[in-house]
């Protein structure tokens, strides 16, 4: 589903290289976890996949179902099925969450040549999804993420993911800032979306998230590369031994 080959990336305005020939494959139906020390380039990888402009790709390719993502604008990538749950979700002043959700869903439908959603159908979908995630309906009337708590913002990311039904979901530290109950609710939300035709890339520092969202594969990232891959037991090993063994390998 998602194939990344030899991805080499630097910051656009600086001489700073962050991803150094990274290789990674996520298959349809697979949940892949990425772990790695602070600053190893995990968020950068997620931004580059999603199409943020601050980076320059020096080499390599990213394919989604065979399509070359690097040639597409961020909004086209979203319509093609890439979703990124941000490590730090942005506040959108003055736009009610409901309004934003509808605009986003319709924009993607339009890009795929589908008809616009009818308002009653949309409201039904949103309410059902919000209830599942324990999101208060009053919150849907407030401007998106403005004044939301850290945990509320993360839940809102999962709500958007559920509504947009992407084929490739990237979750960047979605567990940070969540209390224990919220962690379970969010994990349940993600698990409910697991499907044959959908891939997940879950970036996290903690095993406790992976207790709830059990990964098929675990990758260790260090200094801009995947330095080791394994099954879910690899995460347990990392939790015990830390990343010391990998700082040399990179």
């Amino acid at each position: 589903m998602l194939e990344i080959r030899n991805l080499t990336v630097k910051i656009a305005d600086e001489d700073k290289q962050i991803l150094n020939g990274l290789n990674l494959t996520v298959n349809a139906g697979e949940v892949a976890a990425i772990m790695g020390p602070n600053g190893s380039g995990k968020s950068t990888l997620s931004y580059v996949i999603a199409g943020k402009e601050d980076y320059e790709v020096l080499d390599g390719e990213i394919l989604l179902n065979g399509e070359n993502l690097l040639e597409m604008e961020a909004d086209a990538r979203a319509a093609a099925g890439i979703f990124l749950a941000f490590q730090y979700p942005l506040e959108i002043p003055g736009v009610a969450t409901m309004t934003f959700l509808k605009a986003a869903m319709n924009a993607q439908r339009k890009a795929r040549g589908e008809a616009e959603l009818l308002t009653p159908d949309f409201i039904k979908q949103v309410n059902a999804a919000a209830d599942k995630l324990g999101i208060n309906r009053d919150m849907l009337r407030r401007p998106l993420n403005v004044g939301f708590s850290g945990g509320e913002k993360k839940r809102m990311e999962i709500l958007q993911m559920a509504l947009l039904a992407p084929s490739m979901c990237i979750l960047d530290e979605t567990d940070s800032g969540l209390d224990i109950d919220a962690l379970r609710i969010v994990a349940d939300g993600v698990n409910a979306l697991r499907a044959q035709n959908r891939g997940f890339l879950v970036i996290t520092h903690y095993q406790r998230l992976l207790d709830h969202i059990v990964p098929d594969t675990v990758h260790v990232m260090s200094k801009g590369r995947i330095v080791r891959s394994g099954g879910k037991e690899l995460a347990l090993e990392l939790e015990k031994n830390g990343y010391a063994a990998y700082s040399e390998a990179a």
């Binding site: 402009e53 961020a74 909004d75 979203a78 319509a79 986003a104 924009a107 993607q108 947009l164």
Partner: peptide
């Protein structure tokens, strides 16, 4: 509204 907010919106599919 800065580039980060714009990227967030675009990531959701808005031009």
């Amino acid at each position: 509204i800065g580039e980060d907010q714009m990227f967030y919106c675009q990531q959701r599919g808005l031009s």
